[in-house]
Amino acid sequence: MSYLADELKEKGNAAFRNGQYIEAEELYTQAVQKYSRNPLIFTNRANVRLKLQRWDDAVNDCLKSIEVAGPKTQNNKAFYFLAQAQLALHHPHEALSSALTAYDQVRHPLSPAAKISPKDLETFSSFVLKCKKAKFATRDRDRLRRQGHLRAELEETLESNKQRDLDAISAQLSNQELGPVEASERNQEILSTFDTKIAELKTLFAIADPTNHKPREIPDHLIDMITFEPMHDPVMTKNGHSYERATIYEHLKRSPTDPLTRDPLRVEDLRSNFGLKAACDEFWESGASEWVIDW
């Protein structure tokens, strides 16, 4: 049975690569019916369900994949897809913890011989950051809402309007009234209008009430000098400068030199900077009300 399932899975993968998501999803489903002990089939179906914006189904597939794979194996893709679905479902806390699991797994491969993939590390690292920002924004919104703030209420209204529009598109997508390409274009449009409106709202409140709404700068020492993003897992080079682990790994892959001094530098020379990590965590946990630009 597992042989038939593998065949269907391969067909599903081919359909996925061609962007035929609905067909791919069906093929994976048939594969699972033939043989349900292969975690990869669930992971792949989760991925295609993310494309089809079936977030709850994607969550179930990821959990199933993690369960089938068992606790002693690594399954970072499943955790990564899980994080994506959870973030889409507005569960930033859960999404962050899933993203961190994926990140930790790729950081610490089970067999010591396995190489760390800088590309996966980079992908998961930036998703961790995205979840942290979402969590931060949610907490900030909650704070404003507790104060019965007008802005929180307006943001919520915009948010629910956006969700309504997105849901309408998901519905059309699953009824096959819309193709996946068109659906994702429309989604993009909705999201960018939403972002513009939120930004306008923030600007207005910042002008009207600067003390409570002025964006706060993130201190420079918490910013990675390569991506200009705040760090969450900083490592230090020999000369004492710190970078985000994923970006410096990516740089060292191309050029084994210190970005500032151009002295030879290897991944093994890097040290985790726990003090700075604590400072970053403190920032993420702090009540900074807003970021400059979109930090």
């Binding site: 590309k119 980079e122 930036s126 390569i226 991506t227 200009f228 993003e229 970006t247 990516e250 630009i293 979109d294």
Partner: peptide
């Protein structure tokens, strides 16, 4: 990697 350049350039631009 695709996201890295656009994010960073957006930030450079606003600066």
């Amino acid at each position: 990697m695709a996201g890295m350049s656009s994010k960073r350039l957006q930030k450079e631009l606003s600066k």
